[in-house]
Structure formats: C-alpha cells, structure tokens
Amino acid sequence: MSERVVIEAQELSKVYHMGKTEVHALRGVSIQVREGEMIAIMGPSGSGKSTLMAILGALDVPTGGRYWLEGEEISRMSDRELAIIRNERIGFVFQQFNLLPRNTILANVTLPLIYGGVGARERRERAAKMLEMVGLGDRLGHKPTELSGGEQQRVAIARALVNEPAIVLADEPTGNLDTKTGAEIMSLFKRLHQERGITLIIVTHDPEVAAQTERVIYLRDGRVVEPPEGLLTGAKPQEVDDGHPEDD
C-alpha cells in the first residue's frame, strides 16, 4: 500500500480510578499503522480494546505514552483540539450504529460537515454522494428507524467517510447484525478499502471478521501479545499485505 505512517503510538498507558482501586486498562501499547492498511484489534473482554480504540479515535487521552496521527501529536491535546481532530481525521462506525433517530439519514451524514463548517449546498452534495456510494442514494429522506440494521450501518459508514478522514475506526461493526448482513457490511468495508484506499481499524471479537483484514493486533491485559494459535481459521496471523517489516 503505502509507506506513509498514519498512526504512531508509543507506550500508551491508561489508568482509570474506580474509587480507591486503580484499573490499568493499557500497560504500554505501541503500534504503527500505515496509510491504506486494514487491520483488526482483537482480544478478550477487559483486554483494553475499547480503551485503545477510544485513544486512537481521539475520544480520550492516554495517561502515559505518546500518540501521533499523521505526524501530529494528539496525546496532549485540549478537548477542543481533540474535537477538531475527530471531526477532520477520524470516522467512527459503532456496533449500535449510533444514528440520530429523529433526523433523516441525509442529515445524519451531514452532521460531521456541519461541525466542520462546510456550507449547506456542499454538505448536501457530499453527503448524498456518500450515501449513493453505500447504496442508499434513493433513501435520503428516510429516518434511520425506517431502515434495516444493515442499512443503518451503511448510513453510519457514509457518515464516517464523509469528511474524508485519515482513519476509520469500527467498533464491532457487525456485532448487531445477522451473519449475512454482517458479511455484506464487511464486503462493503473491503470494497471501500480497495477502491478508496481507506485506512481501516476494526475492533472485533469475531475471528471471521478479523480473518478478512490484513493484520491482527491482539491485546491481553492491556498489552499487545501474539494471538493464540488457530485464532483465525484460514487466516495467517501477522501476515502483512506486501511484506514490509512488522512493528513491535
């Protein structure tokens, strides 16, 4: 794909205080993601996947370590700067779709452009184009509740892509979908990845989902570890697209 590093994270740690006890969600995670990669983050519950995803997505800041996104250090940014980073560089796809139920799907996809200060006409055009790309070009005026789960997730993907972000973070994107619909969403991801060169990070429990990515980062107890043997049936863990050297 490309030699350009999009994500550079060094020794990320995150400590939560739950009353008197300290919870170490991350204990020194270092990863690197290149432009155009499609990777999976896996690991059992409590391994720190969600925390890592929140930090990579600029929703939260690490307690320790440093994180650069496209060469800009964002581990020490203010709330306002983080909001701008989320708006311009990151697209989220959630398990629960997380669409605004009262707004039309067009309005939902326009949302990031509104906060990005894009003019009304351009917003509409870009959002409509994105919805067309995910195959919902004829449903612009519908409310999310009028759509199936798979269609709602495609709206969420359109919303994630509309600002042309540096990375797309998907948190269990197929977790709420049946197998067939889940497979459709995954093939949409793969198509977008191939056609548009999107850098995609998928957090998942599902080995079948992980098997469709190019590389798996496996977390256990807040650290990056080797995936267990035979985790990905039919896929070779740590196998990388064009064989450039692995980080970590």
Partner: peptide, 10 residues
C-alpha cells in the same frame, strides 16, 4: 455523545 464523536466542540 454521537455529536461529540463526529466532532462537535463544547
């Protein structure tokens, strides 16, 4: 939360 995730500032 959704609005903040897509970039709404305070």
């Amino acid at each position: 939360g959704i609005r903040k995730a897509v970039g709404a500032q305070r």
